[in-house]
Design a protein around this nucleic acid. Structure first.
Lengths: 331, 331
DNA sequence: GGTGAGTCTGCAATCGGTTGCAGTCTGTGT
DNA sequence: ACACAGACTGCAACCGATTGCAGACTCACC
């Protein structure tokens, strides 16, 4: 059906080996031969069979991506970034969605690992030990978190929280509530930590209201507790939670930002469309995917990991001020 | 590194052929031998190398999915459905995002087609001819549209529009505006058609305001024209457009649903969170992905297409009434 | 006991490439 | 004229599976 390397060889009047070399090690073959091969390749529209190549080289030209939930715009953007960068390197991407089920992750990665050269893993909930076990048999790059000994790309959450708090304090807020995401989530821990530091440095006060699902519903559920803290501003785990807060606050007749300022994290598309438009810490999502791919491919090209230094990527957020934050209300 | 079929054979004291058969054609091998093989497989954690198998069978156990934009929640849901169903069949999915560039599609599908058994293609803009050309060399299932001669799964847009119009007419609306998406989009054409029919059947009046980008910005841009038509209700191409409308109407001080009722299509997550919560025609998105996969796999198993009858899937939308529609204002 | 059918199992070819090794050819230095 | 290095190229083995074909063995039946 489709042309094989033998067809090309016949047409060019050379052996298959020469064709193979002309394609992968061009400097090893005579320029005129190379031209004949190129012509034959062109004429037949030949493209090497990846399965056959992979069989002998041990590389598949494919990477895997595991995310908790594709329908979450944060992960969708991440996937876009991974995908675009991989295509740029002529690498295909298997996407697997765990449906927010951390237990399924290990199995998925194991199944994937047989078919790919490496995996970009987005696993906010798994423990460091679980991750280490997974990385035992597969080349893995973490994304959106770190774990000792494993390469990864993550956000500088502390810096992001510092920006948010500085903004709020400048607006006169002194007591700031914090709606955390799942307690086991890496981001929850780091954002909480960053927040505590920032608040302390600026002589304000933090009022954590506990852990909630990282969803719109989570935000709705948290809203009343936020109000009860008496805080004049709130930082939410992410934008979905912040938008949930907005909804519940609105229905209780609490004005944003008049009575309460709200800050999210992520800057998903929806945040711009919320009412009031959400002030948030924008995280470069596609960028994270891109860097993760680069990291992974670099590791695959250099399995000994000589380039230890570059095994971590760190990305910075940027505060986007919109309409959900304003001056603290006068007592 | 990992166990091969030879290792298993040696451990079980049989030939590789027998191992292969024990796994793929169990009834061909003696029960006791089969048990020995099974034990060896278990002990070694053997799993057949897909590349090697694909080389000889010509099947890769992989399908491709091409979508315009993963960041669009509609396509993200679709992808989830495809992905879940494929995993259920132990088939991996390559995801490719064309970045809303119809020109890139053909190339992408061609590149993909070398590596997969078939492709689920979501291409709202391409012409029937372009699709036919693509399907020449690859097994393709269309999704979210139809084209003559090609298998696919699509929504019954006319039925959905009928539901929307019936709802609006029941609320007393007589003049209904229609904000179309891209003119070349299959869905725009079919929704427009369905709308005209429904409006005519119910003795109402349709006021089309032209074609806009299928985005929030598109909706913002369309809003003033909608108002200018004097309609008391508007059906938007999709939810993103509807939410854009909501935003612009709000900033102009036009009350929804007091002055104008708004209906979207899709029911993306964001619609529930809009203010007012959006009335919309819910399209079963994951279901579409699932059915497309089933269709594709069936075609692959039966290349002659004996099962002509089942080559099309049709899905129905369901009107979800929320707060953006209400009684028509009294003149 | 011999024959034939039937059931398993193994041999070896094959899929489409890649690569170590050896051979050919050309050109240069002496 | 000869030896030798260097540049290409081809042969053949190999990656890890699947599968047509044939051999081995069992069993029943005549």
């Amino acid at each position: 059906m489709t042309a094989t390397i033998r067809d090309v060889a016949r047409l060019a009047g050379v052996s298959p080996s020469t064709v193979s070399r002309a394609l992968s090690l061009p400097e090893m073959v005579n320029a005129t031969t190379r031209a004949r091969v190129a012509a034959a390749v062109e004429q037949l529209g030949y493209e090497p069979n990846r399965a056959a190549r992979g069989l002998i080289t041990g590389r598949t030209g494919t990477i895997g991506l595991v995310v908790p939930d594709l329908a979450n715009p944060f992960f969708a953007s991440l996937t876009k970034g991974v995908q675009a960068r991989a295509r740029h390197h002529d690498v295909a991407v298997f996407v697997a969605d765990t449906d927010e089920d951390p237990a399924a992750e290990a199995g998925l990665v194991r199944a994937l690992s047989k078919q790919v050269d490496g995996v970009v893993l987005c696993s906010p909930r798994a423990s460091d030990e679980e991750l280490a076990a997974i990385a035992q048999n597969t080349t893995v790059v973490l994304v959106n978190r770190t774990a000792v000994g494993l390469p990864g790309v993550a956000y500088d959450n502390e810096d992001g929280m510092r920006q948010a708090v500085a903004h709020l304090v400048a607006l006169g807020h002194r007591r700031i509530a914090w709606v955390g995401g799942p307690a086991t989530s890496w981001s929850t821990q780091h954002r909480g930590f960053g927040l505590r530091n920032a608040v302390e440095a600026l002589r304000a006060e933090l009022a954590p209201v506990g852990n909630f699902a990282p969803t719109y519903e989570g935000g709705m559920a948290a809203a009343d507790q936020v109000v009860a803290t008496g805080a004049t501003a709130v930082v939410a785990y992410n934008d979905l939670v912040a938008i949930g807060l907005l909804a519940r606050l609105h229905s209780r007749g609490i004005s944003v930002p008049g009575d309460l300022s709200v800050v999210g994290v992520d800057d998903i598309a929806m945040s711009r469309m919320a009412r009031p438009a959400l002030t948030t810490v924008r995280l470069p999502k596609q960028e994270a995917g891109r860097i993760a791919v680069e990291l992974l491919l670099a590791m695959l090209d250099d399995p000994d990991g000589a380039a230890e230094g570059s095994k971590h990527g760190e990305l910075h957020g940027e505060l986007i001020v919109r309409d959900s934050t304003g001056p603290a209300p006068q007592k």
